[in-house]
């Protein structure tokens, strides 16, 4: 009985010692040699991928991908159209600058059309 307790105490002491050694090792890690850090950084610089021009794919991504570029193209087309043939409520800025006017006449008779574009006759 006494022998068993003694062995248990000894085992507990040994484990406590090990924990103390671990704590010491964690608290005082070995310092990285400056030469090693220097070599690691030199390797990193030598192997660093080249950050070249971003290219058209990069611009495409920067503009928001397909949705962004689609919106930009649509807005540009609408802007050009409004510039060339503005509605009556807007001033004809392009005409004033270029000294030209663009006229469009609508000769269709709206009376011939219904809301669906056909004359529907029912008997």
């Amino acid at each position: 009985m006494h022998w068993g307790l003694k062995m248990m105490d000894r085992h507990t002491n040994e484990i406590t010692d090990v924990e103390a050694f671990f704590a010491d090792a964690r608290a005082t890690p070995p310092q990285v040699p400056a030469a090693l850090m220097q070599r690691v950084l030199e390797d990193a610089e030598a192997l660093r991928p080249y950050a070249g021009p971003i290219g058209w794919r990069g611009w495409f991504r920067l503009l928001g991908g397909a949705p962004g570029v689609g919106g930009l193209v649509t807005a540009t087309c609408v802007g050009i159209w409004l510039g060339v043939a503005p509605p009556n409520v807007l001033p004809d800025l392009a005409g004033e600058f270029l000294d030209t006017t663009a006229e469009f006449s609508d000769e269709s008779d709206p009376g011939d059309l219904t809301g669906f574009g056909w004359v529907l006759e029912e008997s």
């Binding site: 090792a25 890690p29 070995p30 310092q31 990285v32 040699p33 090693l36 850090m37 690691v40 950084l41 990193a44 610089e45 660093r48 991928p49 080249y50 950050a51 070249g52």
Partner: peptide
């Protein structure tokens, strides 16, 4: 960031990782 050519990222990575790896390898 390093893969995109950022040299500062390499420094940060080296600083944070090298010490841990060296301690492990030493032990």
């Amino acid at each position: 960031r390093y893969a995109q050519g950022d040299p500062a990222a390499a420094r940060l990575l080296a600083t944070s990782l090298t010490s841990r790896l060296f301690a492990h390898a030493m032990r």
